[in-house]
Design a protein around this nucleic acid. Structure first.
Lengths: 348, 348
DNA sequence: GGATCGCACGACAACGTTGGCAGAAAATTG
DNA sequence: CAATTTTCTGCCAACGTTGTCGTGCGATCC
């Protein structure tokens, strides 16, 4: 007579599987994780038992026993909603696989003190590591605070990460020059560039990529109109207005992100310019905005979810290896997404 | 000489706190959770010890010992990115508090078989409950599959949830009539309405709210132009074109969501109409889009994150109480957000 | 004033898994 | 074929918490 345990959830445990397969619980555990040093016949028996009982390991027990990191912080700010949701999807997938919890903290303000404050929230909640999506990946106060607390972090999507930091990114430089070449290939010779917020190194890298492609084509960089933007829709309006007010406006505008590109399209429309017939506009990021406008935007896609996954994985590896690794950097592939906002320049 | 445990993470445990406070571990546990049957003096001693040692409970151990639900599914589809990110933020906050994991599953397709397939993914991963944000909250196949597997679920943001279901929502009817009254108060007497996707009951509720406000004002409902939309930007373009092609176009357009409202603004601009001077446009949802357009959109804000939190909390309560509760419904407050896309009708 | 009650608290076991070790089995070698 | 190595497997304890039950103590009730 086995009296049912007081707190039985009726779930299948390693013990059940072990009994079914005629082995010990430890062997089941070995098969489930990695599975070194298990005879093939044994492994198959265990796998069969797992399949038969439809066993799935209890992640709480697992992380308790293994003593692994369970709380990973994610500090976000100024969330381009589209970016954030993709990022969370990727991070959650990796977190579940690793059996760890994601702790979100919002950091709205731009001020150093606000950022430091939000970071201290993490220190108090005992997160073992932190993921920093842009733009906080570049925040001095945040990083100083983490450094002081001895909490490792991974920066995501920095343009030019400092040596010795953990980071995941795309090659902003290469992506921006590829996009510029796309415009050049279409025949544009007078291309305006709207820069991104200078508080992010990716802005500089994108600009550098633009410049490199222009010069490589043998054109005069100084002749290209360049305006300063701040990644916001509003700043894109100001920049585009300035650019189209020029005596000789460009035939194409390359905005450093989609929001500013959308602004450029809006400004053009209000001036009676048709996009892309009269003016080509391209963006960067491929957020949801790129397809909720007309015409749909030619842009650069970042593999956001994959970057978040990579960041979390990298962070966990760092935490598992108790020795501080010197430098881990991962550069993921970007993709040029050609849609309808771009055409050869008007014949005139 | 206490020899350090082999797997010590050096973290503070209940034992440490208990020693510090001169009580037993169990008492610490009681203080931390609820804390019934603890003398005030003891409680204070424990709290002091907790503060001193900066203790925070290990959630893995907690959920293991308490045997609580640890995997909650979240099936999303067609994510308006802004909606999804807000939703995830809320769900994650609640999940962490409860110490449970969020399991995401994407369901892209519209077809019944695809939806059933995605749902079966949950059944196999042993999630104990599922949260269904719109539009899947209304999906027959998904619900049938969950019903068959005996997995409880919570629907979020249905317009008119069926009796006996767990759900969290806002009052779409009231929100839509409030918005309509806002337009009426501004002096509009000829208001066009773009309906939402008929596969969601919230579409019908919003339309009902519009109708009620119109009739309450003593106006002729039949004189108001109504077009069918599908919550997409594209469908909004088609509907707005049709509406503005009318011999007597409306002075205001009420779109059932922000995407379609953005489309209406775009169409107006291309026709040389100024928003809001020549045409007022209002939306619904207050997604990020509402502020990345010009003029910024007057719309209805749903407390998305709060709804997600409420849904998860409700689901966990349902799971904890092993008896199936009959009916739990929670209606959260919406908010009318007045921005710049709305003005009195032109004097003409 | 003794029996009873209720409250506060502690000891112990259990949750489901994995790490360390030791023992058994198989493979290799002389 | 015996000795030795290597590969495989099982036992026990530990991870940090909470549930159950029992004990001690002061208050309450006749």
């Amino acid at each position: 007579m086995s009296k049912p345990s007081r707190r039985s959830r009726g779930s299948i445990t390693v013990q059940d599987v072990a009994r079914e397969a005629g082995v010990s619980a430890m062997t089941v555990s070995r098969v489930v994780n990695g599975g070194t040093n298990v005879r093939e016949a044994t492994r198959e028996a265990v796998l069969a038992a797992i399949a038969k009982l439809n066993y799935s390991p209890n992640s709480a027990a697992r992380s308790l026993a293994a003593g692994e990191a369970t709380q990973i912080g994610l500090l976000y700010s100024n969330p381009s909603a589209a970016y954030l949701s993709q990022f969370l999807i990727g991070a959650l997938a990796a977190a579940r696989r690793a059996g760890c919890h994601l702790v979100l903290e919002a950091c709205e303000g731009e001020r150093a003190e606000e950022q430091a404050e939000a970071t201290r929230g993490f220190v108090q909640t005992h997160v073992q590591g932190v993921i920093l999506p842009p733009p906080l990946s570049e925040s001095g106060p945040v990083r100083a605070e983490l450094e002081a607390a001895g909490i490792p972090w991974v920066s995501v999507a920095m343009g030019l990460p400092p040596e010795g930091s953990l980071n995941v990114r795309i090659d902003d430089f290469a992506a921006a020059s590829a996009m510029t070449r796309h415009l050049l290939d279409m025949g544009h010779r007078h291309i305006g560039f709207i820069r991104g917020n200078p508080n992010q190194t990716s802005s500089a890298e994108r600009y550098r990529g633009f410049c490199a492609a222009i010069e490589e084509a043998g054109l005069d960089l100084a002749a290209m109109p360049v305006e300063q933007g701040y990644f916001t829709f509003r700043s894109g309006i100001v920049a585009s207005e300035a650019m189209l007010d020029l005596p000789k406006p460009p035939t194409a505008i390359f905005a450093s992100n989609d929001d500013m590109a959308a602004a450029a399209v809006g400004v053009a429309h209000r001036r009676g310019l048709h996009v892309p017939q009269d003016l080509s506009v391209v963006g960067f990021d491929d957020t949801a905005l790129a397809t909720t406008m007309w015409p749909e935007l030619t842009t650069v896609r970042q593999p956001i979810a994959a970057m978040a996954e990579a960041a979390l994985t990298m962070l966990l590896e760092e935490l598992r290896a108790d020795v501080r690794t010197e430098h881990a950097e991962q550069v993921l592939a970007h993709q040029l997404i050609v849609r309808e906002s771009c055409a050869p320049p008007p014949a005139a």
